[in-house]
Design a protein around this nucleic acid. Structure first.
Lengths: 227, 227
DNA sequence: ATAAATATATAACATATGTTAAGTTTTTTA
DNA sequence: TAAAAAACTTAACATATGTTATATATTTAT
């Protein structure tokens, strides 16, 4: 198996890593700090692109609504992640919405400033487009999981993915999401999600405090992937 | 509802439409005709990109394998479609595989020739990247359907999508796919798919001859989307 | 053209998931 | 801080989907 997490992570926090120190300075100087309240949108489907964001603090969900209006979450962003650039290349509208799950601190680069950066740093555009290609593969993997795995396996996979992603910010932190949001990632109702969580809890695979989920037995979760 | 089909179609057959006649001539001159046998691969996951393809005749499936090795099909290409360009921008490996479902006739543009075209036709790169953005939205919509819809609704949606896509080539043609492939699009077993097909048949929504599916009542299929 | 292999159709049964409902805990608001 | 609202947990029941099995049709190879 190829690295498990790279199959499901956008890895946008690496976008600026390949730059020289001077180039990085150019990028960081272009950033303007912004505070965004829990529940408000960084951008929304069909909206006109304004620029790109890098999350400094907090979490955000990227989602799209199906015909029935139900929210389908397909990514949770955490600190370090860069987002909002798809729509800038190609001059189109946003394809999805992004909402702050808690109060956020972000660095914002306005559209025009970003285009200037692309001119000044030759390698940058290719890095971004390469990452869009990688993200495309991530979505294809998410499709495979949703189409092929039963509820417990989908939950297991997503618990592993989310713990890993959340730990980057905060060592040994648990998974703190509303049951509604977690259900909207996994593709089920919050009640069915609750049943699976209880099973996992009874088997000692996870522990729950308040609503925060802590993984206790990652081996057993990995076993579940085989279903 | 935004145009139903644009939510699920890559629309790559429109990529060269915006070009001037002269530019189009440049593109068409760069193409080299190729025959590909049923069952062989145009490209495969982790392979090194060689160029792009436009399908002249036949159908191809784009898929990815999950951990369990099960094939997840996330797109069926038909004549006019252009494919294989994601990996060329950004210099990466293919993220997925593409297999001929029948004997294909394609036009091929080799990597170097394609890059030359991008230099000679300024608008072309943006058009391609814009389309990758659109395709990203299509995958997100597919995720929403797989996560939120029950089997009959998923089948209904995909029958409407596939009929529309296949009709472009051949007026009033039916949907001719193996049950296995159709099940691997919809995210179920071929037996469960068979049960749903029988239900639809009994209700007069579809007719089946040999294995080819003909839609008889599109209204009723649209009703099913609400589930 | 025939036999063998593969794909399809269908049914019966087992299991997983959706749904409704009620009680409990946690968070938000006044 | 108390009251109200929202989120969570759990259970029982209904339904949808997975699975196994068998018969039939279609395609492929000889």
């Amino acid at each position: 198996m190829k690295n498990f997490h790279s199959q499901f992570d956008f890895e946008s926090e690496l976008l600026f890593d390949a730059l020289t120190p001077d180039e990085q300075k150019l990028v960081f100087n272009a950033m303007e700090p912004l505070s965004i309240k829990k529940g408000s949108l960084l951008f929304y489907e069909e909206g006109i692109p304004t620029g790109i964001f890098q999350i400094k603090k907090g979490k955000a969900k990227k989602f799209k609504r199906g015909f029935s209006g139900t929210e389908q979450i397909f990514y949770i962003y955490t600190p370090g992640d860069v987002l909002g650039y798809h729509a800038l290349f190609g001059e189109e509208r946003y394809q999805d919405s992004c909402e702050a799950l808690e109060d956020l601190e972000v660095n914002f680069i306005a559209k025009d400033v970003f285009f200037k950066l692309l001119q000044d740093i030759p390698a940058l555009q290719q890095t971004f487009i390469k990452n869009i290609g990688h993200e495309f593969g991530v979505l294809a993997n998410i499709i495979a999981v949703l189409a092929q795995k039963n509820l417990n396996a989908r939950l297991a996979i997503n618990l592993l993915i989310l713990e890993n992603r959340f730990q980057k910010q905060d060592k040994k932190s648990g998974i703190d999401l509303t049951r509604e949001d977690l259900a909207n990632i996994i593709g089920t109702s919050s009640e069915s999600l609750g049943r699976s969580l209880k099973q996992f809890k009874d088997e000692g695979i996870i522990e729950i405090e308040k609503r925060v989920i802590y993984l206790k037995n990652r081996e057993q979760l990995l076993q579940l992937l085989k279903n």
